[in-house]
Design a protein around this nucleic acid. Structure first.
Length: 1011
RNA sequence: GCUGAAGUGGUGGAAUUGGUAGACACGUUGGACUUAAAAUCCAAUGUCCAUUAGGACGUACGGGUUCAAGUCCCGUCUUCAGUACCA
């Protein structure tokens, strides 16, 4: 009986599906454990071997936890809204829902054949109306919330209305728009309801705001930053302009501090936490107001101007020798003097032409212009020149800085460049070469009341004094911006929003979901409206509470609906809660209280690091909002998180002839080019290397000569020219081209016939000439690159499963290397783990069936087993899956050598292997006579007594270098070890008569002889 | 520039609190079985020197600490990722 993996795997996959083996229960005596993968976007290309890496790791962990007696929730679903489906729809006219469905079917088939222990009964799809109903519902909750800075949490907006009616907004500490004016209770109560609504919108956690976007008029759409290359659209190369649009935004900035603090308690890598910390970008300092000194010469009546700056170093306020405004700063035009006007305007124009990216990338060029105006130092009252410079960005802080050249390198460089004074305000610090930017180990000098103080005290005192003057206040700044939530796309969640006189109104939750309307085309309208502008039935009737035809809009009872849709991150920001509820009980709730209470949050989350600032930050934000509003009990969604690395492709290159034709007439260029492309010559990589070193085989030289001559003849024949003395010469050269990796074997040899007959680019190579190695093989060059279709290095898991089985695939993906690491795929290596599985099989099954018996295990058998239990358990808990695969190999090698047939050893071994290779484990488990699935069999218990050794093979080293080993009893004393070793003949030989200076004996470890 | 991760045979990678560097595989070479191939099994395989015995060198590079360093410390280089004139 041989190891027939195809039928075994099919058998057990069917068994698991039929028996619902991995269905999680919301009630159990067992402790709960929630293992989640970042759900996939079902793309049309299907899975390649890189995709399941994280799923295999999480599956091993989930299966391990089941063996350890946990009630495990391990669900899977699809992030099924998204741009690729929409783009495909634009091209083909097919409805995205249809293509998405097809893609999901492929994904499901591919996932199923790898043998994951997913509870598919809880599947979610973000594009399913029953799902996005609740995405819309959460949007409404955000709309109905405001954030109290004092309590540091969100509350219902109705409470804020009550506060306004009682006391106005002067005392309330709420997060709101910058331009929110102050009003009293009396004023509030006298506002019209429209005005009240407008004001409330400034406080809601999702709100409408004018946002600058990258608008591409040609494509009629908004582009993301990374869709723009060198200022034009990536697709088509069309112009892109900055345009203001009214869009929904999410007030995530309100949660900046909690998002930052919350990181401390999470079991995430420091690398990932750092990325989020950087993104949130907290800086503590002060806001300082500088008064602009009115220009005396100006004939117009000067209004008093103020410049607000944010600084992290209020202690250095006496070191200010100039100010710099961003060229776009609104004050620039007002304060610039007549004399400087021309120069300033020229500079503004110049910097406006540079893109923000451009300005940021260029660190070396220092540029700026003096405005002619001066500000007054708040304490010394000295005039401070005001400059503009494009190193200051309008979009950060206030778009203005107080420049302290002695304490900031950029200010220092600027001052040096323009010959501005650099006052030194640090005690005993040399600033003749560079600025002193450190806050530590320095005292302030030349600074009036701050003299002699260190950073902390000086900052505090400076802020206090500024407050006394009314020219400053302590402030904390965050880099984190509010998130734009509108997308001008079709394939996303519609907003539950209609407009009455331009003011947004929420649709009552009971009428959700608002389904995506049908459109005849998925493009923006000719007027530049989003695709939903094409829908004919897209108006809200407040009487029937339903979506009705647009032509009924009367703006009294029937109103237009929102045309934007939600972004990709909407549906993925809460899906982990949806899985908690049984599919059968999902009707009235996004998840029931009981389910939310039972599963709490995700214990282990595995996914790619590309979501570090998007998905992972937005989910945390939404969870905090849902917690504040009492809908969930947890502050954080993902307790432990692991980023799996990427599996790279190993591309194969062949070298193709390329002639540089030196020919005195250009009119035949095309003819020659086509002749060359129709007569390809490929050279083996090794031979090419030799050729370059000028020691290739004679055969090769002869071949090349021949080919050159042939080519020259061919060209001559095709050029109908009576002149016979055409001056043609050929430079024979080779250029690398990708070939499909499936034509290359483990020894990097190319299957020439495969390439010749390949349908895709086969015609090109059908008559190709091949210059081989001397032994007749043809070698390719290999290089590691990202796996991609265009590089012909994509490996499809379907083929691997068909050839080697899912268990081999699972083991091999883990065996490749540490989970978090980037590593290249090489199909050739899979024979190693596949051979291991065959060996494992042979340990249980002989030619005539099962060979396992009740033989008493030997000491060695037990030692091997328990060594393996210990190592595998440690490895799984450390997510070191690659090393446990090696451990299994060692165990099976040892047990094979020991000719072990004992059931007491081989049965527990199956449980150890089952998380990694579940199909073969189930099969052998059942052959051993078990009637139940192995998946809940208890994990074997490690017994240290089997590993106790009576002797140790000591490494004996001389000056730290190991020379030989010596077997000595474990219980031998230190002195006895030393005596025995020193008396040994090999020691004497090593020492050659020298007397050692020192002998180090570490019992149980090592002996080192010095001298 | 800053932050983080990494650098070990021909390749993927092992190596516990410093204690036998290269486990386990792939590949390569040789052998067994076979008409042959596949499959399977056995052996060798870091580099260099040496017929052998054995020896020298060796974890990116240069130093240091230590009886002992891939591991700890200082400096340098390279690669990858994130971020960016953040005041």
């Amino acid at each position: 009986m041989t190891y027939d993996f195809n039928s075994i795997e099919k058998k057990w996959q069917d068994y698991w599906a039929k028996n619902e083996t991995f269905k999680a229960s919301n009630t159990s005596d067992k402790p709960k454990y929630y293992v989640l993968d970042m759900f996939p976007y079902p793309s049309g290309a299907g899975l390649h071997v890189g995709h399941p890496l994280g799923y295999i790791a999480s599956d091993i962990y989930a299966r391990y936890k089941r063996h350890k007696g946990f009630n495990v929730l391990h669900p899977q679903g699809y992030d099924s809204f998204g741009l690729p489906a929409e783009q495909y729809a634009i091209q083909t006219g097919q409805h995205p829902a249809v293509t998405t469905e097809t893609n999901i079917t492929t994904y499901r088939r591919q996932l199923d054949q790898i043998g994951f222990s997913f509870d598919w009964s809880r599947e979610v799809r973000t594009s399913n109306p029953e799902y996005y109903k609740w995405t819309q519902w959460i949007f409404i909750q955000l709309y109905e919330s405001w954030f109290c800075k004092h309590a540091n949490k969100a509350f219902p907006i109705s409470e804020l209305e009550k506060v306004f009616a009682r006391e106005g907004n002067t005392a309330v500490e709420a997060v709101c728009d910058d331009n929110t004016g102050q009003f009293t209770a009396e004023q509030w109560n006298n506002f019209s309801s429209e005005v009240q609504q407008e004001i409330l919108l400034k406080y809601r956690l999702t709100y409408l705001a004018e946002t600058e976007v990258n608008w591409c008029p040609e494509l009629g759409t908004v582009l993301a930053n990374d869709e723009i290359v060198n200022g034009v659209s990536e697709r088509g190369g069309h112009a892109v302009v900055r345009k203001k649009m009214t869009q929904w935004s999410m007030r995530i900035s309100a949660y900046a501090e909690r998002l930052l603090q919350g990181l401390d308690d999470l079991d995430w890598t420091d690398a990932l936490k750092d990325i989020q910390k950087n993104w949130i970008g907290k800086s503590v300092g002060a806001s300082v107001t500088f008064n602009v000194i009115p220009a005396v010469s100006s004939s117009a009546v000067e209004t008093s101007h103020k410049i607000d700056v944010f600084t992290t170093r209020p202690d250095t306020i006496f070191g200010v020798s100039f100010m710099t405004l961003a060229p776009e700063h609104e004050l620039v035009s007002q304060i610039t003097t007549e004399a400087q006007k021309a120069e300033v305007e020229a500079y503004i124009e110049k910097s406006a032409k540079r893109s923000e990216r451009d300005r940021m990338a260029d660190v070396k060029t220092i540029s700026g212009v003096f405005t002619g105006a001066y500000a007054e130092h708040p304490f010394s009252k000295e005039p401070i020149p005001i400059w503009i410079g494009d190193y200051v960005l309008a979009s950060y802080g206030t778009g203005a800085v107080m420049a302290v050249p002695c304490g900031d390198q950029r200010d220092y460089d600027f001052a040096k460049h323009f010959d501005i004074a650099i006052p030194n305000i640090f005690e005993g610090v040399d600033i003749s070469e560079e600025a002193y930017a450190s806050k530590d180990n320095v005292k302030i000098a030349n600074s009036d009341f701050l003299n002699g103080l260190a950073y902390k005290k000086a900052s505090k005192l400076a802020i206090y004094q500024l407050e006394q003057l009314g020219q400053g206040v302590g402030k904390t700044n965050y880099r984190l911006r509010d998130a734009v939530f509108s997308r001008q796309r079709y394939w996303g969640e519609p907003f539950p929003v209609y407009y009455v006189n331009g003011m947004p109104q929420m649709i009552d939750a009971e009428h959700l979901p608002i389904r995506l309307p049908e459109v005849e085309k998925y493009l923006p309208t000719e007027e530049g409206e989003p695709p939903l502008g094409r829908a004919d039935v897209w108006a809200w009737c407040t009487e029937s509470n339903s979506v009705v035809s647009n032509d009924k809009i009367n703006n009294t009872t029937i109103h237009p609906l929102e045309l934007n849709t939600m972004p990709g991150w909407a549906g993925s920001s809460w899906y982990f809660f949806r899985y908690m509820e049984d599919a059968a009980n999902r009707d009235g709730v996004f998840a029931s209280e009981a389910a939310l209470k039972y599963w709490e949050n995700v214990d282990l989350y595995i996914g790619g690091s590309e979501h570090a600032t998007g998905h992972l930050l937005y989910s945390r934000f939404w969870v905090k909002l849902l917690k504040d509003r009492g809908f969930v009990n947890v502050e954080e969604p993902f307790k432990k998180l692991i980023n799996q690395g990427m599996i790279l492709g190993t591309s194969a290159f062949v070298y193709r002839n390329y002639f540089k034709v030196n020919f005195n007439s250009e009119e035949y260029d095309e003819t020659i080019k086509s002749l060359i492309s129709k007569n390809p010559v490929l050279i083996s990589h090794e031979e090419l290397k030799k050729l370059k070193q000028e020691n290739a085989s004679e055969k090769t030289y002869r071949l090349i000569e021949e080919l050159e001559a042939n080519m020259e003849n061919l060209i001559r024949r095709h050029i109908q020219d009576s002149e016979t003395n055409l001056n043609i010469s050929l430079d024979f050269n080779f250029l690398p081209i990708h070939v499909k990796v499936q034509y290359v074997n483990a020894s990097d040899e190319l299957n020439i016939n495969g390439l010749k007959s390949d349908g895709e680019f086969g015609e090109d190579f059908k008559d190709a000439k091949f210059i081989t190695e001397e032994d007749g093989t043809f070698k390719v060059n290999r290089e590691v690159e990202k796996m991609s279709k265009s590089k012909y290095n994509v490996v499809n898991p379907d083929n691997i499963v068909a050839d080697y089985g899912a268990d081999s695939l699972r083991l091999y993906e883990m065996f490749l290397g540490p989970l978090e690491q980037y590593k290249p795929w090489n199909t050739a290596g899979i024979t190693g783990v596949h051979g291991f599985l065959k060996k494992l099989w042979k340990l249980y099954v002989g030619e005539n069936g099962l060979i396992v018996n009740d033989a008493e295990p030997t000491k060695d058998n037990l030692k091997t087993l328990h060594k393996t239990i210990k190592k595998v358990q440690e490895d799984i808990e450390n997510f070191s899956f690659n090393t446990s695969v090696s451990t299994f190999m060692i165990a099976v090698n040892e047990l094979s050598k020991q000719k072990c047939t004992s059931k007491n050893i081989l049965e527990p071994l199956l449980v150890l292997i089952s998380p990694y290779a579940p199909h073969i484990a189930e099969e052998l488990w059942s052959q051993l006579g078990n009637n139940n699935t192995i998946s809940t069999a208890p994990f074997p218990v490690f017994d240290a007594s089997h590993l106790v050794e009576s002797s140790k093979k000591y490494p004996i080293s001389f000056n730290g270098k190991m020379r030989f080993t010596l077997e000595l009893p474990m219980d031998m004393s230190k002195d006895d070890i030393e005596k025995t070793v020193m008396a040994h003949e090999k020691t004497i030989a090593q020492l050659e008569g020298r007397t050692p200076k020192k002998v180090i004996v570490v019992p149980g470890k090592i002996v080192n002889i010095v001298g």
